[in-house]
Amino acid sequence: MGDLARTRLVAGAAALLTVVAGLGIRSAATGVVAKYAGDALYTVLILTLVVLLAPRVRPPVAAGVALGVSWAVELFQLTGVPAELAAHSTLARLVLGTSFNAPDLFWYAIGAAVGWAVHRAARVRPRQAFGTVS
């Protein structure tokens, strides 16, 4: 298996694990813990999808794109369009949300930072991690 295929496989698995983690948190926690963990995981999921689509993307770029998309979706909520769409579609509600909440912007940044750190760590080659020279 080539590096690109392996990266896509890992990114796909990470996306699935992120969704499972989000669902798990929503079922085990309530209130602000579930909400803000969900916000951070939303950005992590976007980052994994960016890597899935562009496996050569560098961690800071993937994190920046994920954060930008997350912020754009949050700001889009100011228009009222996502709320209208969410009234007719569960998928729209899950993807676009319904109402603007300024603290979400911070938690998206936390998700981007965590996603960046994991992506960066995952890109280190095993021989580099153990200090051997090839």
Rank of each mutant, 00 (worst) to 15 (best):
A121F: 06
A29Y: 01
T79I: 09
R6I: 07
P126K: 02
A62H: 01
V65Y: 01
S99N: 14
A14D: 10
A92V: 13
R127Q: 13
A87M: 07
L91R: 07
R58G: 12
R8Q: 14
V20T: 10
A122E: 03
Q77C: 05
F106I: 13
R56G: 15
I110Q: 00
H88N: 13
Y36K: 08
Y108F: 13
A72H: 11
G80Q: 01
L75Y: 01
L17M: 10
A62V: 03
A112E: 11
L94R: 14
V10C: 04
A63C: 08
G31V: 08
R123T: 15
T48Y: 00
A112F: 00
G38S: 05
L17G: 14
A37T: 15
L67H: 06
E84L: 11
S89W: 05
I46P: 00
S89Y: 03
A121H: 09
G38W: 01
Q128D: 15
P82R: 02
V95L: 09
W116F: 12
Y36R: 06
L17K: 12
L67S: 10
T30R: 07
V69W: 00
T43R: 02
V33L: 02
V114G: 03
F100E: 13
V32L: 03
A29D: 11
G38F: 01
Q128I: 08
Y42F: 07
T90N: 11
A113C: 04
L45E: 09
L78F: 05
L67F: 04
W71N: 10
R8N: 11
V33S: 05
G2D: 06
T132E: 14
L91P: 03
L49S: 02
M1L: 08
A87C: 09
G111F: 00
A21W: 02
I110K: 01
L91Y: 11
L45G: 14
A34D: 15
A121I: 05
G31S: 04
G24M: 03
A102M: 07
V81M: 06
W71Y: 13
T18N: 10
F76K: 10
V61K: 01
V118L: 06
L94V: 15
V33R: 04
P59H: 01
V32G: 04
V133A: 05
H119Q: 12
L94C: 10
R93G: 14
F130Q: 09
I110P: 01
L4Q: 10
A63M: 04
L23Y: 13
V57H: 08
E74Q: 12
P60V: 05
R56S: 13
R127M: 05
G12R: 09
A21V: 07
V51S: 00
F106M: 05
V95K: 03
A14L: 07
A29R: 11
V124H: 04
N101T: 15
G68S: 06
